[in-house]
């Protein structure tokens, strides 16, 4: 059994999440050889005959695209690991700026760029947009999470290596959350820094923009359990992914409206920075963008000018 982990446009956090199997990684490497992983070993190219290739990160430039095609050819099973690979993830947010602005930001505007430094001409050019791995290659499994949580990976990676299948919950973050709704009175939207949320009751009901209801679970509702509203890092819940008429933004507006008896228009007025609060992890996904009610197209058009 040969395993590879490829890095595309991402932060390498998903590879680190694999290392977070801790002592269990010893069992893993007893059953399988990790033959290629730029983050944790020195092999420069993926060899032929890979059994399972985990691909992390989105596809943002030509190099990402080439590497994806190469590993797809050399692997029997390809797993999109992490939300960037599944839905574009944080890398997808780059679509909110034009390619020229991104380039100039990285090579001129950040503090670490030397004034008057040489702008490289041999770096891989950007594609015209970000893509999720599944938009450009055949994917056999999707494992979401930013990064996929340890408790989840310890179940699925050994099962994958052993060729087993297992039944896991496919519900939203709310299903894993231990809060109850509680009273919803005088609802107004609160920013995260405003006040300290009550630990018993639903964060959304308290006015915090918690995306738990539209987000796929598997994280054990880690953020809400620590008093932090869910920001949707596992990607959309399966009902949102499935229905062309359901979208993260639209469904959040509808739920808030149903909970508070405010009209959807009033709710929409209170929301801010929709690109970052609603679509931070899915903006690079063609499937999420293709939804009729998705705001992604408009947001990208508006910001990337």
């Amino acid at each position: 059994m040969k395993i590879a982990i490829e890095e595309l446009a991402g932060c390498s956090g998903c590879t680190i999440a694999v290392l977070d199997l801790h002592e269990m990684i010893l069992d893993l490497v007893a059953d399988a050889d990790i033959v290629y992983s730029p983050v944790i070993m020195d092999a420069k190219e993926p060899p032929e005959g890979i059994d399972i290739a985990f691909v992390t990160g989105a596809v943002r430039n030509e190099e990402n695209h080439e590497r994806l095609e190469k590993i797809r050819k050399r692997a029997k099973v390809l797993v999109a690991l992490g939300t960037c690979a599944c839905y574009g993830g944080i890398s997808g947010l780059s679509m909110l700026s034009s390619n020229e602005d991104l380039f100039s930001c990285v090579y001129r505007e950040v503090e670490t760029a030397k004034p008057g430094g040489v702008i490289p001409t041999d770096v891989p050019p950007f594609l015209y947009r970000a893509f999720a791995v599944g938009d450009l290659a055949k994917v056999d499994y999707y494992v979401t999470g930013c990064p996929p949580k340890e408790a989840f990976l310890t179940k699925i990676i050994p099962a994958m290596v052993a060729g087993d299948t297992l039944e896991l919950s496919r519900k939203s973050v709310c299903a894993e959350c231990d809060r109850i709704m509680g009273p919803v009175d005088n609802w107004t939207l609160k920013r995260r820094h405003e006040g300290i949320p009550d630990r018993e009751h639903c964060l959304l009901g308290q006015g915090y923009l918690c995306l738990g209801s539209v987000t796929f679970g598997r994280c054990g509702a880690a953020c809400p359990k620590n008093n932090i509203p869910c920001h949707g890092c596992n990607g959309p819940s399966l009902d949102i992914l499935r229905e062309p008429c359901r979208d993260i933004y639209g469904m959040m507006v509808r739920r808030i409206s149903d909970l508070t008896d405010k009209s959807q228009k009033e709710v929409e007025k209170e929301l801010y920075d929709v690109a970052h609060t609603m679509y931070a992890f899915t903006i690079g996904s063609l499937i999420m963008e293709d939804k009729e009610s998705s705001k992604i197209r408009d947001l990208v058009k508006e910001r990337s000018r």
């Binding site: 229905e243 062309p244 008429c245 979208d247 639209g250 939804k291 009729e292 009610s293």
Partner: peptide, 11 residues
Amino acid sequence: IVRQTLRRNGL
């Protein structure tokens, strides 16, 4: 078929 069309179009 109407429901399917509406849901396809987000109406």
